[in-house]
Write a protein that binds this DNA or RNA. Structure first.
Length: 121
RNA sequence: GGAGCCAGCCAGAUGGUCGCUGUCAGCAGCCUGAUUGAGUCAGUGUUGGCAGAGGAAAGUCCGGACUUCACAGGACAGGAUGCCAGGUAACGCCUGGGAGGCGAGAGCCUACGGCCAGUGCAGCAGAAAAUAUACCGCCAGACUUGUUCUGGUAAGGGUGAAAUGGUGCGGUAAGAGCGCACCGCGCUUCUGGUAACAGUAAGCGGCAGGGUAAACCCCAUCCGAAGCAAGACCAAAUAGGGAAACAACCAGCUUUCGGGCUGACCCCGUGGUCCGCGGGAGUUUCCGGGUAGGUUGCAUGAGGUGAUCGGUGACGGUCAUCCCAGAUGAAUGACCAUCCACGACAGAAUCCGGCUUAUGGCUGGCUCUCCUU
RNA sequence: CGGAGCGUAGCGCAGCUUGGUAGCGCACCACAAUGGGGUUGUGGGGGUCGAAGGUUCAAAUCCUUUCGCUCCGA
């Protein structure tokens, strides 16, 4: 087992529709002009990630795929920060036009923001 | 050099670090499931090898395969297609040919059957818009001599998108296919071609009688409907349905002696407790349907590549060879370095054959034009 | 992924069947009535009919392609 590294296996994902419902019902939010990130305390120590990128805000399938990859990439590099959280990332309208570096910066701010908020409560 | 036409090809490259999906091989482990005499298989973890978006993956505009439902056969309705021949699993696609049109040319484009079956439509203008006619004219005659009437005419003028073939000569009161010549048109025959169709071929007819079928329609050919969220299988929990076993089997009433009915016992709530009141009827197993969820459908195919043969070609035959994405909150990426032309349009979702639309670049052939020789 | 429908004035709609004039309500502007406003009455303006081609003498209407929006099916 090499849990300490940056892998992204299946246990780090939100899989069922019921998992998503749990996150949407009582979330802690973090928002900027690219993303809205929702979070709740998860059931285990493993953080879990879900994506909700709508066709309405991001018209082209190519752009949607790019955003998903970037979010997953950022998530696996910051797993220690968000450990124990269930997260859902929603893309906003301007996200598709931004370049990759900006998006990575935005996401790492969200991870820190949310882990602080949840540890305070 | 410039403008353009046609065909074909590519879809940033190389290296490093981290990561994802599938598959093959090895290892781990006995955690989960199945089954068993050990064990094996599937899942799981891990190491290594290999593979991992498109020419349009798009729009969903056509055609199939594949599923489920319906179905003897046929007809009607509805829809699609529409020059001819061929290709194909099939097509509204492709190839070749014909006809018509566009262009200076290379070339390109065409819903290209039928208004001699029937019905409908045509505003305004114009005398008249589909079956006949005459506004201005032209000509003749009449007498009431004039802004008159009657008749003839369709050559000229004017309207319109569209007005009953064109030119010339003859002819005539003026005219007219009224007659003739040539052109055009139609029909018959002949010749060439599988056919569409073509012909400087022969003969006949003075000449059909307008347009519109992306108007209804007629003719010929084709089509059952819905779609992988189709469909098949496994199946927790909860409620409910059916069956069996166990537990209970106390009292009363009844009986055709199998049993049936009523009440209590029991559990929960109220309450300090009893009565009372309100609610619930036990436990276990199995069966069928079936939700969450999972598995499958799901990738060896009308497949690719090469050679060769047949064909003008689309394409087909034979032989050899290869296995080439398979996700399911949804993989094919991120970062760094170097190079160059500094990277357009854009992301598989059951699978194929087309069409259409978006779009960067390279190569070859051809046409026109300009300059130089 | 698959299936169905809708784009007409600032807004909500009709007209498309069977092609020739684009119309209705609200809103807007002007005028009248009032000392002023509202209400009412009269009159008026405003349209690439989502876009591009085609058929036709003529297209919002017929045909083809395309863009956008809405709804339905685990």
């Amino acid at each position: 087992m090499r849990d300490s590294d940056n892998a992204f296996p299946e246990k780090n994902r939100l899989l069922a529709a019921s998992d998503y419902r749990k996150v949407f019902s009582r979330p802690v939010r973090s928002t900027d002009k690219y993303f809205t990130v929702l979070a709740t305390a998860g059931s285990s120590n493993e953080p879990r990630l879900g994506l909700a990128i709508s066709k309405k805000n991001t018209r082209l399938a190519t752009d949607r795929n790019r955003l998903k990859r970037i979010v997953r990439e950022s998530f696996r590099h910051h797993k220690e920060i968000v450990s124990g959280l269930d997260l859902v990332v929603m893309a906003k309208f301007g996200a598709a036009q931004a370049d990759n570096r900006k998006l990575f910066e935005s996401l790492s701010r969200h991870w820190k923001n949310l882990s602080n908020k949840l540890n305070d409560t």
